[in-house]
Structures are given as C-alpha cells and as structure tokens.
Design a protein around this nucleic acid. Structure first.
Length: 646
RNA sequence: GCCUGCAUAGCUCAGUAGGUAGAGCAACUGACUUGUAAUCAGUAGGUCGUUGGUUCGAUUCCGACUGCAGGCUCCA
C-alpha cells in the first residue's frame, strides 16, 4: 500500500508504507540524507528511523537548522551521559537538555568532577561518536521503566517517571549500553553528531532548580553542525568577552570595585561623567512626560518597613543598623518613602495620575555568589518612579510607559528587548477580580504594542503582576532592566488615599516603574552594547585635542576652552610625543573625536578632525566643528555621521 | 548562600619538581619638536590576596578566610 507524502514546497510523492524519514531523505538526495538529523511529520519532530505509516506532511530537518542543531545538542548531552556512565559508573544521571548554543547534563556523584575529568569525558564522547552506536526508540511500560531504573541505581530517573502523568507514553532511547528516558527525537546513530562539540564548564545546579534540594554537578558543552561552526562560535565568544564591561571599565578607566566594598562601585572621573549624562538624560525625559522628581532618605526607621511589608518579605536582603536604641534600615527600595511624600497633603482624583520620580539610592544585601561586575551590586541607584492613579488609569499609564521605555532604549541603541509578563503568585493580596483586570491591562498593553512576550505564571509580586523588560549582555545573558508593576496593596497599607468624584476616600493604585532599572546595571549593558565606544552624546570624554608641536600649545588650549564653552567635554594632550603615539592612545580610549593640531592648523585656525572608527582626517574650522558636533550630540546620534564616518 | 576554578609589579601575563621572583606596556629621568594606531636610552617598582599548618626553609604543598570568574538559587 502506498502513502502520500507531501513536502514543504507543495510536492506530493508516494512511498510504500511504512516508510521512514531516512528513506524519504535518501530518496530525495544522498546529500539530504547525509545532513538529515530528524524529520518533521505533520509538524511534530520525529526520529528519522521512526515508521511513517500514513499520509503525512513531511519536512526533513537538517543539521544546520535551528531545529536540527537542537537535536544534535540533545544527542551530545546523551552521548556525554553515556561517556560519564562508562567512566564513572557510580554516577547517577538526571536531566540533560539542549540549550542555546549547546547542552548540559546534571549528574549526581559523591566525588566532584575536575576540569581534567572534562577532558577525559570529552575524549570518551569522541570514542562513542566513532563507535557510531545505533540509537533506538522503545516504548516502555511505566512500572517496568521505574523498576528498571531503580534496579540500576538511577533513583532520579525513577523519580522523574513516577512524577510523569499516567497518560504519557514512555519513550526510552537505547544507545549501546546506555538507556535514557527521553521524548526525543534523536539521531539514528551516535556517529552523526560528528566533531563540532566541546565541553566548556563545570557548575553546581540544584535538583529541580530548588535550592532546598540536593546539589548536582552540571557539565556544560557547546555543539554545532561541524567543527568549523564550533570554531566560529568559540571565536565569537572570545570576541564578545573583549566587550565585557568589567574589562572595559578598567581599560577605559571608568570605575573599579575593591575587596573592602564588594558589590559597590567606585566611579572614576570618566565613568562618573557617563553616569551623569545618563542620569540627566533620564531626568529630562521624565520631566518632559510629567514626572515630578523628589529625593527621599536612605536611612529610615525599621517600623516603616514593617508597615510596608518589606520587613517580612525582604529582611534577609536589608542592611539594618542600630543606634541610640533605634533600629534603622538602609532602604532597599524607594516605594514606602514615595508614599510618605504622596501622603503629605490631601489628594484629589484631579491630582491623579501623580508621578513621583527619584534617582533612589538603594542597598540590598545580595548573596555573595550573585554579585557580578556593576550589573548585580549591593549598592545601586534606580531611575525609580511611582505613578499614583485610579484603576481606570492603569491601562493608559502602562501603554504610555511602554512607549516611554521604547523611546529611551532607542536613544541608547537598544533594539533587542525581551518582554516577560509575570502573573499572580499563590501567595498574594487583593481580589482575583482585581488581579484579572491588572493582568489584562498589562497583557493588553503588550499586545497593543505588537510585542512578543513570554508568560511567567506565578512569578508576579505578592501585591500585583509585572512586566519585565530585559536586555542582553555581550555573551547573551539576559538582565532585567525596565519594569512595570501594578500594586494594589502598598498604598492601602501605608494609608495613601484620595478624594474621589463622589467625595469618598479611596486608595490609589500604585504603579512601580523603572526604565533603566538600576543605573549601574544599565551602564554595564550600555558599555557592552557599544563595546566601550560610546556615541558622541554619551562619551565621557568627547574630544581630545592632540598637539603635534609645542608651538601649537596655545592654540590647542584656545580650542579646548572654546569647545568647553559650548558644553563639549574636551581635554588637551600637550605631551611631548609623536602624533602617531597620541592617536593610538586616544583611539584605544575610544574617544569619538581626536583633533590634531600642528603649526598648519595653528596658523590657519583650523582643526584636523579624526573620528573614532575611521582612518581619515578632515580639516575644518573650529566653528564648523562645533556646529556639527553639537548637532550630533543634540540629535543623540548613535553613529558618527560627520565628518568622515567610514 | 551552594558547586567548580582562580588570586604574582599600576596593567597584561610568565615563573618556581619547595631555596624570598621576571617580561612587555605604564611610571620616573634625559635626549628628540615630531603630521595620524607605539622615538630612543636609562632608572625605579613586588611581605607573590590574608592567615594558620607541614618543613631547616613556603610565593610554590595542605587548611581556613576574603575577593573575583563561571554556573545554580535569588534579583534592578
């Protein structure tokens, strides 16, 4: 009997039933068969060797596609597990998925793996690939599977199966002596993985992601369709690490952190200049959009935190101190203080929405292992603001905020933003009906803006749902920056109210929101985004005036004074060095414009302008330079447009 | 906080099978007055993260602590 197989290009061909993905690929071309790793049957990923017995829509998945790579990476994880079981039979295997760029597998073993073990394991993996073991899919009975894994000491696997829904079909993949529970699909044999993989790092990971559980040993690896792709990836990572903000913070002399103040930043003149540009920019944009900037205390009596609910939920993260028989907390958040400002004087519905903003200095006693450069610190400043509004105003305020955030991120050059919506957790305050409305409001705002977003069920704050806006660092790690949180609880707890149209007193809704998140974290991402070469409007030092001969010093000073008078951040380099030396040094410092001044320029009252990223020089008058550079800064241009961008 | 690893000059790094360390750049001094990514010569610079132990002797071996890196957990 023949079955009809239709392909993505619309073609339909008949095959004798049953057939397989492998047979179909082979029938199309030997090249396709060689590159095939799986097959999509009516949209579901299947093993190449699995029988196709009825008419179907079929697509061969090749090794260089995203889905193909996922299969390869998943197989790499299984092959690693097989290698580990061969080398260290006392080890229990747990789970091992494919992840972005690679894979990992979590192992339970008394003894710790060493970096040397990684080399041994990788070598054994290559043996297994060379053996080209057949990988077979088997359907097992639930109890049989539990008994089997228990019998070989794989308690974790048995636990996984026990927790699977009864209805689930149990597929077990067999490769050589190694059997693993897995939904698949997998390669027909281990040899197909080839040699585009490498084990990268060793880490601890909690069983089922819960820090109350046992800690397992996780081995990470990366895997690609071939060795060339692997090398390209390793090269990419190496290049990306050059953009690390911690490295650039040092070489560009922006900031440092030292042992005596872990998680707190010492800002150097150039770093602080950048910091202030960003903060002032934010202050101006907020002013334009009707925010009122305030400043509240850092040290506040602990009782306020008890009333706000922070003491209960946050006390582990709070720094506290006792003096004169009073207990204080160093604020970890600004919200309770903002409510105190709101509470001064009677508010009417006509005052809403009231937007109170603060560059609030917060301190949180983050766990030592969580600290990371200036991205995750213990002392940071939030571009925090609280919008006090009525329930009816939530929707428009959230929409307005997303628009605001986009405008800001665009100015800084960020285009890739990851959106997440976190909804009601189990432990929460407020009626479900109110939660329904606020979650809907956030969801609608995301959808109205046509954004792709991920749902994080149960991840919301106890007082309300939130949207998280995350940006990626140089190696693709995600950092939450912006946030929008709906809060029905805090205003009531802290006695905030307004007089409504009907004369009754009501508690306002509070929207906690930040765009940069923390200025420290945002600057870290910003530095990595631009690889330290900041656009003119952000560059801490915008212009360096470098003299060629000492006789040009006076003119150089004159130029510097004129630039500074126009608000341009300029310095002079009068050192007795060759121009080539100065150009090299200031280029390495990634200064947007170097103005070289020799006798020619001094006599003609001109400048030789060299922009960062270009080898060219353009001679122009001081006035022309000031005009064009000022324009570039005012427009917040991301790329040097004039005078000689490459 | 947990797991693994790391800590040598201002920076980037080398080194010691246990006998108190070296390079390049930077700094300082002198010469050179220079035209777009490193001018030459000389000088100086280190309790080898802190702290216990083993040893005749520890920067090196072992332990603790602190910090950092990667990951987990947690978060802006």
């Amino acid at each position: 009997m023949d079955i009809k197989i239709s392909f993505p290009d619309g073609a339909v061909r008949e095959f004798a039933a049953p057939t397989t993905g492998m047979a179909i690929a082979n029938d199309i071309s030997s090249g396709l068969r060689r590159n095939a790793v799986a097959v999509k049957v009516n949209g579901a990923l299947w093993d190449l060797t699995r029988e196709i017995a009825a008419d179907a829509q079929v697509e061969i998945v090749t090794r260089d596609t995203d889905e193909g790579l996922e299969v390869l990476r998943h197989d790499a994880a299984h092959i690693m597990a097989e290698a580990v079981k061969e080398l260290f039979p006392e080890t229990q295997v747990t789970i091992g998925p494919a992840i972005e760029d690679g894979f990992y597998y979590d192992f339970a073993r008394e003894e710790a793996f060493t970096p040397d073990d990684l080399v041994t394991i990788e070598t054994r993996m290559r043996d297994i690939v060379r053996r080209n073991e057949t990988i077979e899919r088997e359907i097992w009975d639930r109890q049989q599977a539990i008994d089997y894994f228990k019998s070989i000491g794989e308690e974790y696997k048995a636990e996984i199966i026990t927790d699977l829904p009864e209805t689930e079909e149990l597929s077990i993949y067999r490769q050589g002596e190694f059997l693993d529970l897995c939904v698949g699909p997998h390669l027909p044999s281990t040899g197909i993985l080839r040699d585009g993989f490498k084990l990268t790092k060793l880490a601890g990971a909690y069983w089922r992601g819960d820090s109350n559980n046992a800690q397992l040993q996780r081995i990470y690896g990366t895997a690609w369709s071939d060795k060339k792709q692997l090398k390209a990836y390793l090269k990419r990572m190496e290049e990306a690490e050059k953009r690390d903000h911690r490295k650039l913070g040092k070489t560009l002399d922006l900031f440092h952190i030292q042992d005596e103040a872990p998680g707190s930043v010492f800002w150097h003149p150039k770093g602080w200049a950048l910091y202030q540009v960003v903060q002032q920019y934010m202050a101006d944009r907020q002013y334009e959009r009707g925010y009122k900037e305030i400043k509240t205390p850092i040290l506040v009596d602990f009782s306020l935190w008890e009333r706000s609910g922070h003491a209960e939920k946050f006390s582990d993260d709070m720094f506290t101190l006792e003096t004169d028989d009073r207990r204080y907390a160093i604020k970890p958040m600004n919200c309770p203080c903002h409510v105190q400002v709101y509470n001064q004087g009677l508010k009417s519905y006509r005052d809403l929405p009231l937007k109170l903003a603060e560059f609030g200095s917060c301190h949180r006693n983050e766990m030592s292992g969580a600290l990371h450069g200036i991205m995750r610190v213990r002392s940071f400043v939030q571009d925090d603001a609280h919008v006090f509004c009525t329930e009816e105003q939530i929707q428009s305020e959230v929409t307005e905020f997303i628009d605001f955030l986009h405008a800001v991120y665009k100015d800084f050059g960020f285009t890739e933003i990851v959106y997440k919506l976190s909804t009601r957790p189990e432990l929460r305050v407020g009626d479900d009906e109110v939660w329904d409305r606020s979650e809907k409001a956030l969801e609608k705002a995301l959808n109205d803006n046509g954004l792709d977003w991920d749902l994080q069920p149960g991840e919301g704050a106890f007082y309300g749902p939130k949207i998280e806006f995350s940006l990626k660092d140089c190696i693709g790690r995600l950092w939450q920056c912006g946030t929008m949180q709906v809060d029905f609880s805090t205003p009531g707890r802290l006695g905030a109210e307004y007089v409504a149209e009907d004369g009754s007193k009501k508690a306002p809704v509070m929207l906690h929101r930040a765009i940069l998140g923390s200025i420290e974290r945002f600057l870290g991402i910003l530095i990595e985004q631009h690889a330290g070469a900041m656009p003119a409007w952000l560059a801490p030092q915008q212009v360096m005036i470098a003299t060629i001969v000492t006789d040009a010093n006076d003119y150089a000073e004159e130029v510097c004074a004129a630039l500074r008078a126009h608000g341009i951040r300029a310095e002079v380099d009068l050192r007795n060095e060759k121009i080539g030396y100065k150009v090299r040094e200031h280029s390495l410092q990634k200064i947007p414009a170097i103005l070289a001044i020799g006798m020619r320029e001094a006599e003609e009252k001109t400048l030789a302008v060299r922009r960062f990223g270009s080898q060219n020089q353009t001679t122009m008058t001081l006035d022309d330079f000031i005009t064009s550079f000022t324009q570039e800064v005012e427009n917040r241009e991301l790329m040097a447009a004039t005078p000689n961008a490459e």
